[in-house]
């Protein structure tokens, strides 16, 4: 685990450490079981092609959960993920890199909570944002 990030040390415009994913079809099957989303376009090649897709595609909700991990890993252990989400703009495929990124857009205090807003997204190998979104986290403050 990297060292704890503190609210005081974060600036608007900072990019947080990236999280690189590359899904095997096996991972998609584990996700289907874990999430309860059994739509066949995510594990059955023939079914996916029949619906007009180029092949099996990665679940949008899995990419969203990757963004949840991106934020969790940045703020852990003392911080917390308050809110996160994305829109599903583009498809991602198994055995291709999905790079999760985030940039700080705002830092503020609400009561006793030290908060940071971020723009978050997943990027495909061509550099397109396939799941653009936003998140809010709490971070510990120094002193």
């Amino acid at each position: 685990m990297p060292e704890q990030v503190y609210w005081d040390d974060v600036d608007v415009g900072d990019e947080i450490p990236t999280l690189r994913k590359n899904c095997s079809t096996q991972q998609l099957v584990v996700w289907a079981g874990a999430s309860g989303d059994f739509y066949q376009i995510h594990y059955d090649q023939a079914f996916a092609k029949d619906t007009g897709l180029d092949g099996i595609i990665v679940h949008g909700a899995l990419k969203n959960a990757f963004l949840g991990q991106l934020l969790h890993d940045w703020v852990a252990p003392a911080g917390g993920v308050r809110k996160f989400g994305c829109t599903y703009r583009g498809m991602d495929y198994p055995n291709q890199d999905i790079v999760c990124r985030g940039v700080v857009t705002k830092k503020y205090i609400d009561g006793s909570n030290h908060l940071v807003d971020l723009e978050i997204w997943t990027e495909n190998p061509s550099g397109q944002k396939t799941s653009p979104g936003a998140g809010t986290v709490t971070l510990p403050a120094r002193g």
Partner: peptide
């Protein structure tokens, strides 16, 4: 359920 979900995502935090 928590473990299966975390495993599917690839979480490494043991919580």
């Amino acid at each position: 359920g928590c473990r299966l979900f975390a495993r599917a995502v690839g979480h490494t935090d043991l919580i």
